[in-house]
């Protein structure tokens, strides 16, 4: 994964609450065996409205989305993160995110920045005309108008994003600890260890 330090640029003033992953990418787009090309299906239903924010000339291609509460709720489809990435989005700012979506976003290097509704309201105004800067190291969101909001982020996730670390590689490096657990489980809870090997 590429390291992520800063996301800067125009933002889509989206603002919608409870954006579910069916809105981000409808199910018929999930029939792919690749991670690429899903941007074409992103927000498909909303984009049928010619006045939709994602096709507005001045913000088209923006790297940031400003959204409402509970962004990414619903399905676990990582295609939602891939679709955003494919349309050039590298960060979403919202008052809250669904657990599964924020995990998926993180694993694809997309920042999910949690800020209170007042900050979102202000950023919605700024996004209409001006760029926004998210700095991961200092955990801040700033605007050309001296607005400065700080956000919290899990320290492990921050470390992985800044260093561009591969989680699978990190865990495989702890292979001995996993082996030790497996040996314990085989002794103490053998019924879990057999799995499909138990088939009649």
């Amino acid at each position: 994964m590429e390291p992520v330090r800063q996301v800067e640029g125009r933002a889509y003033p989206f603002g919608m609450k409870n954006v579910d992953t069916d809105i981000i990418i409808p199910a018929h787009w999930l029939k792919t065996i690749s991670r690429d090309g899903l941007g074409r299906g992103a927000f498909e239903a909303l984009r049928k409205d010619p006045a939709n924010v994602f096709d507005r000339d001045d913000v088209k291609g923006a790297p940031i989305i400003v959204a409402g509460d509970n962004f990414g709720c619903g399905s676990s489809r990582e295609h939602a993160a891939w679709a955003l990435l494919d349309m050039g989005v590298k960060a979403v700012i919202a008052p809250s995110f669904s657990d599964i979506f924020s995990g998926n976003a993180f694993k694809n290097g997309i920042l999910t920045v949690v800020l209170p509704q007042e900050a979102i309201d202000r950023l919605m105004e700024v996004a209409e005309t001006d760029p926004i800067t998210i700095d991961l190291e200092s955990q801040t969101v700033t605007t050309p108008f001296q607005d400065r909001f700080t956000f919290e982020i899990d320290s492990f996730r921050k470390h992985c994003l800044l260093e561009g670390l591969d989680e699978v590689g990190l865990t495989l490096a702890r292979g001995d600890a996993i082996s030790a657990y497996e040996a314990r489980q085989a002794k103490d809870m053998p019924w879990f260890a057999k799995g499909t090997a138990l088939a009649a």
Partner: peptide
């Protein structure tokens, strides 16, 4: 890799949905 994995909590399991990167992580590391 499906959010309705929470279903299996009905038999008293800790069950939850994951994204595809996590599917890969589980396959590789359990």
């Amino acid at each position: 890799g499906d959010s309705h994995t929470s279903c299996h909590g009905g038999v008293g399991a800790l069950a939850f949905g994951i994204g595809t990167s996590e599917v890969e992580h589980v396959l590789a590391t359990q």
